[in-house]
Design a binder for these strands. Structure first.
Lengths: 271, 271
DNA sequence: CCTTCCGTTAGGCTC
DNA sequence: GAGCCTAGCGGAAGG
């Protein structure tokens, strides 16, 4: 009942050849996917599939070869061989079902709120890979709008010499929140709106709403400054129209200020 | 100079064990990635990496195990073991460089406009997979805003009894395009704005701009109807303020109408 | 090239 | 949970 070493090697090679030509055995593929899900591993399945989505919208994608990625937290992604975005997906928390239906492998990802179903029918599985990935690293993003604000609070002259921030995230009636509220060297109130990209007419209008809210509250119209790396051409006329000032401020410049600030902190507080 | 069959098998198994414990040989991994890029295949690399991004913003992600996916069109995705979104990415058209730097594998994806660099340093490569995927299928999405418009054109009573659409995508001066322009049962002009999600104050304002544009053109103010599944609380007061009417219309209801329409077509024209 | 608008936007925050 | 805003938003369509 025992076979020689060569026998097993040849069996494996035959199996390999069958897999390359016809795809994996679907039952085996399904088992492997299930095992990956149980272990909360990252499951990558390559194969020829149809995809049905029904939920907030609905979509159908005919048969074609793609990558299916299922993560341990229930995120699901389907990637075509081109394009940055997944063609179909399901966010974290989806419940995954795997079953064999005749000669097809069926994978469903369901979510309750909003109620959505993603159904994938594999006609052929080329490959299933399981990855147990360990990733505890912190993701640090710089030069967000939030960081630009922190840079201004740390170094108010980024807006203008003598500018003194008084409050950040000040509520402006029901218009929203003012990014930075302060006073200039002459004691005038100043409302600052920050954008990390070129300012649009909408941005100017929002700033004007803040100005009007402050005017209603204090009976005096504050200066309005929009701090952004640039301004859309169409928005330039709005500036003059509403007496809004523009201050060029790039995310990069802010990042430099913050780096310098952190450097100082380290110097002051020791290593 | 020849070895027995068993010798080679043992060598392969030893290599496999080394790979499982220590990761792939980096030079070999790099060569495989290059081969995949040359062949415009989908390249999937699992491994322990650091990631640097510098462009519109900048980010740093410390060492950890992730999946790197590079597609034939130059799209790059880095996926952590959790979450629906890639932690870092580069859109299609990026130029990919692969090189060995000491005992690290370096992969860079560059883009010119905007100038952005994504730099990935692999400290350990667990696996490299190449997939030559063929996918020519068409992606069909339903219940978009466009489809809601088609449903209204097919079944105008979705807006109100007696409504007659005259034009879709009518230009409204320089304000943009009116979704549906028509007349009601009493011959009044009607401007309809469609949203597949709850209507906002901005949506109401846009509709009012259309109304004013039509009023300038015809010397008569048209009725304004916003058709959406709901309306934001803050936008309710804007309705009365500008005399805009709200008609509840969900993407789902529109999808049903379109399905029924297609069903009728089939019935009328035969199978 | 630039702008505007849509998206199964997602994700984060507040209430 | 609903409501609101931001995003390295991406992508498409129009000028």
């Amino acid at each position: 009942m025992t076979h020689g070493f060569e026998y097993y090697v040849k069996r494996v090679m035959f199996r390999l050849a069958v897999t390359v030509l016809l795809g994996m055995d679907l039952v085996e593929a399904g088992e492997k996917v299930r095992a990956g899900l149980r272990g909360r591993e990252v499951v990558v399945v390559a194969g020829s599939m149809e995809v049905f989505y029904e939920g907030r919208a609905s979509s159908y994608l005919g048969e074609g070869e793609r990558l299916l990625i299922i993560k341990g937290d229930g995120s699901v992604l389907i990637h075509r061989p081109h394009g940055y975005e997944p063609v179909n997906w399901q966010p974290p928390g989806s419940k995954i079902d795997v079953k064999i239906d005749g000669d097809k492998l069926l994978i469903e990802a369901r979510r309750v709120s909003p109620r959505e179903v993603l159904r994938i029918i594999f006609h052929r599985v080329l490959d299933v890979r399981l990855y147990r990935l360990v990733d505890e690293a912190e993701f640090a993003m710089h030069a967000t709008e939030e960081e630009m604000k922190r840079a201004i609070l740390m170094e108010p002259s980024l807006i203008e010499d003598g500018f003194k921030p008084m409050e950040d995230e000040r509520r402006a009636g029901d218009s929203g929140f003012i990014d930075v509220f302060g006073v200039d060297s002459r004691g005038n109130m100043v409302v600052v709106e920050i954008k990390r990209r070129n300012a649009t007419t909408e941005d100017i209008k929002q700033l004007v709403r803040y100005v009007e809210s402050v005017e209603r509250e204090f009976g005096k119209r504050p200066r309005a400054i929009i701090a952004a790396p640039g301004i859309q051409k169409a928005a330039v006329r709005e500036l003059a129209l509403h007496g809004v000032e523009f201050k060029c401020l790039t995310p990069k410049r802010c990042a430099e200020v913050l780096r310098r600030g952190r450097g100082l902190d380290r110097f002051i507080q020791g290593p």
